[in-house]
Amino acid sequence: MSINLIYSFREGMLGLKRARLATTIAISTVAITLTLLGIFIVLTVNVQRVIGLLNERLNVEIFIDNSLDPLSIKLLQNNVSSIEGVEDVTYISKEEALERFRGEFGEDPLAILGENPLPASLLVKIKNEYRNPEKIVTVVESIKVLKGVDEVIYHGRLFRLIHQYSKVILAIDIGLFFIVLLSVILLVSNTLRLTILSQQKNIQIMQLVGATINFVRRPYVVQGVFQGFIGGVISMGIVWVIVQLIRFRFPHLLVVPLHVLIMPLLIGVLISYLGSLMALKRFLNA
C-alpha cells in the first residue's frame, strides 16, 4: 500500500475522530434513512412473494367424462401435457376426489347419496409465463376441445384480479422505492456535503500547498464510505430486530433472504461514496 493510501485512511479516520459530533449526526442520519429503505425493501419483497404464492396456487382443473376408460384417460393426460403452457398434469381419480372432499368438508357424499358423485379430474399446473388472463384462456380453449373433457374450471376472474392488482402493486412499489431511494440519496449526500463544507478551509489549504486532487479527495471519501458503512450496519441490525419481533408474533408472515437484509448496507455505502465524490467535486472545482 502506498504511503498516500495509508495517509488517506489515517487522515479519514482522524477526521471522523476530530469531528465527533458531525460524524455521529452523519452516521445517525444514514442509519435512520437506510432503516426506512430496509423496511420498505423487506415489505416489497414479501408483498411480491405473497402475490407470487397466490398466483402459483391458481391451477386449471379438468373434470373428465365419466364414460372414459383408463387408457383414454391416460391419452387425455398426455394430450393435455403436450399443450403449450402446461407445466405438469396430475390425475385425481374418483376415489382420491372423494377422500379430498371428506378431508375438506368433513362429510361423506357416499353415505348420503349411496354412490360417489365426484368425477375423476386432471389438475393442470400452468407455466409461469402463461399465468396471465390472456394466455391462460388459450390454454383453456386448447383443453376444452379435447375428447373426454367434461368441464374446465380455471378461476379466470381471480387470475384477472391477481394479475391486475399485482401490476398496480408493483407500479406503486417501484414508484415508492424510487421516492424512498431519492430521499436517502438527498439526505445522505447532503449530510456528507455539510461535513465536507465544514472542512472547506482545510481543503483550500491542502490545494495551496500542492496536494493533488486525489490526495485531497481520498480522506473525505474514506470518511464518507465509513459513515455509510457504519450507518448501513446499524440499519441492518435495526431491520433484523424488527423482522425478528414480527416473526415472533407471526412466525410465517415474513421471509427475509440475506441479500435483502444486506441491500440497504450496499446502497448506503454506494451513496456515501458517490455523495462524497460529488460534494468534493464542487469544492475542488471552486
Binding site: 502506498s2 504511503i3 476530530r18 478551509k201 482545510n202 495551496l208 493533488t212
Partner: peptide, 24 residues
C-alpha cells in the same frame, strides 16, 4: 497564515510533505 487549526505545529508542516508522498 492559513494553517490547519485542528492540528499541531508538527502536523501542519508535515502535511506539505505527506502530500508529496515523502516517507515518514
Amino acid at each position: 497564515f492559513k494553517l490547519l487549526e485542528d492540528r499541531d505545529v508538527f502536523e501542519n508542516v508535515a502535511f506539505a510533505l505527506w502530500a508529496t508522498g515523502v516517507r515518514r
